[in-house]
Amino acid sequence: MRLREFALGVLGWSSLLVVSLGVGALMAFLCVRGLPALDARLFFGATPAWDAILALRPVWDGIWPAVAGTLSLLAVTMALALVPGVSCGVYLACFASPREREWIGACAGVLAGIPSIVMGLFGLELIILLRRTFLPQGTTCLLLAAVCLAILVLPVLVTATRTAIEALPRQLTLTADALGLSRPQIARHLLIPAAGPGILGGVILSMGRAMEDTAVIMLTGAVANAGLPAGLTSKFEALPFKIYYTAAQYTSAEELARGFGTALLLLLLSWTLILCAKVLQRRLSRRWAE
């Protein structure tokens, strides 16, 4: 009967190897091909950097418009999702009745499981509906994509905020109760500041989620060539869409090299975000460890 132990050992070691080798190979490949392309020319092409950043001259063969598009998309998304998401999480953790907790929690849970492409389809349907009713000239645009992304990251925000607050030791609330503080006072002056790093970590995680998502924006207004985003109701470029587009439609070696550079850039950005989130959440759990 030592078979089971043997099988488990083999399974464990081989999956460790397979996962490390698989991911390692993909990432090393990306670095080897992408690192040479990662320089100022990748961003701005032949245009002088400051002229491009100040939007004095258009950038033709660089990814600056896509970077700007992704940044503005992120900004609009977070502006839309931040307040509702965090306050919903705070409400769930501090004030909700068990019934509400169950219902809102289930809603967020279901929505967290929805594939992002379905959310993109939702955006497309929404704009078709609007065109039929109020907005005959409406079209897919930055605002629409941001709305859909905001709905997509809402559950992430809600859950992260709620978990951060619920992970605090219960004695904190008990002591405050005993001292005669009201529930809103406890939440505002005690729980939210104490859970601050965890909440911030959740916000950063949801930013990462919004930044990398391709499926939503490809149905709601991302295009391959739009220049800098001109406004909330215009089409836009975005890094993930640029990568997707390059993989399918590249025409020259330079374009492919730019694609590798872009992919590496997006990867590094995502890793930076998750490392920040992780450091913040670890700091929170360490502070209340004892």
Partner: peptide, 11 residues
Amino acid sequence: TAVPTVVYGFA
């Protein structure tokens, strides 16, 4: 967990 899907796909 942080690798974007599109990057996996591209590589």
